[in-house]
Nucleic acid binder design. Structure first.
Length: 213
DNA sequence: GGCCAGGACACCA
DNA sequence: TGGTGTCATGGC
């Protein structure tokens, strides 16, 4: 099975996921993706939503994020876990964006290396921001991507982030919409088929692997 | 009551 | 480079 075929199968089964930013009150709305990408590190999206819900009431711009008291920010994002670390890193990220020239310039011009220089932003978070906030074609690799596609026989269990990303970016049409949907569909596949009691029989990709993530 | 979620980083060999 | 401990809440 090739990657384009895997994408088609997932899209047909689960439909479009629509992960890109809706209007949640942050300005610009892409800021929600940037914040969410950091808050969701090793954390379920449900908990992130709780944190965003509190945050959006009093902190909707990078300027507000940079100036809010750290203790207050910790309280607001507490449901997302690791709240001390994340509060510190979010404020640092906000200062970085302001120093960069503001959200507008940041979204247009920031590079992957520049993002990786920010404390708290690693490869997956950087690519999530580039893809879902900046609209640049960087494929997001997560643990699920590695596990699902190594079981489907398309990559090795121990391939590095860069190797996996290269495989997807060379094996797919370079298209932001497709990259966005594909990553979201892989997460959806993992949720539905690979957790707890694996339902492998009708798995669209690796039928019969019978393994949990 | 244990396990784990849309990771990153410091530290070590 | 590769392995390990740490950070922490909430849902199931």
């Amino acid at each position: 099975m090739e990657l384009e075929e895997a994408y088609s199968r997932l899209l047909e089964r689960f439909g479009p996921q629509g992960w890109w930013p809706s209007d949640g009150g942050f300005r610009p709305r892409e800021l929600e993706v940037c914040i969410g990408a950091m808050l969701t590190q090793n954390t379920s999206w449900k908990n992130v939503e709780k944190a965003l819900e509190g945050l959006r009431k009093e902190c909707r711009t990078v300027e507000e994020l940079a100036s809010i008291r750290k203790g207050r920010l910790e309280k607001l994002i507490r449901p997302s876990g690791y709240y001390r670390q994340k509060a510190e890193r979010l404020k640092g990220f906000a200062r970085f964006i302001i120093g960069y020239g503001g959200m507008g310039k940041f979204l247009r011009k920031v590079t992957r290396d520049e993002l990786l220089s920010v404390r708290g932003i690693g490869p997956e978070t950087a690519d999530s921001i580039l893809l879902y906030a900046c609209g640049k074609p960087w494929f997001v690799v997560d643990l699920y991507t590695k596990r699902v596609f190594s079981r489907a026989g398309l990559l090795g269990e121990k391939d590095s982030y860069g190797q996996v990303q290269e495989l997807f970016m060379s094996g797919l049409e370079r298209d932001v919409g497709k990259y966005r949907e594909f990553h979201a569909l892989i997460v959806e596949l993992s949720k539905r088929h690979c957790r707890k009691r694996p339902s492998c029989r009708d798995c669209p990709l690796a039928s019969g692997c019978r393994k949990m993530l």
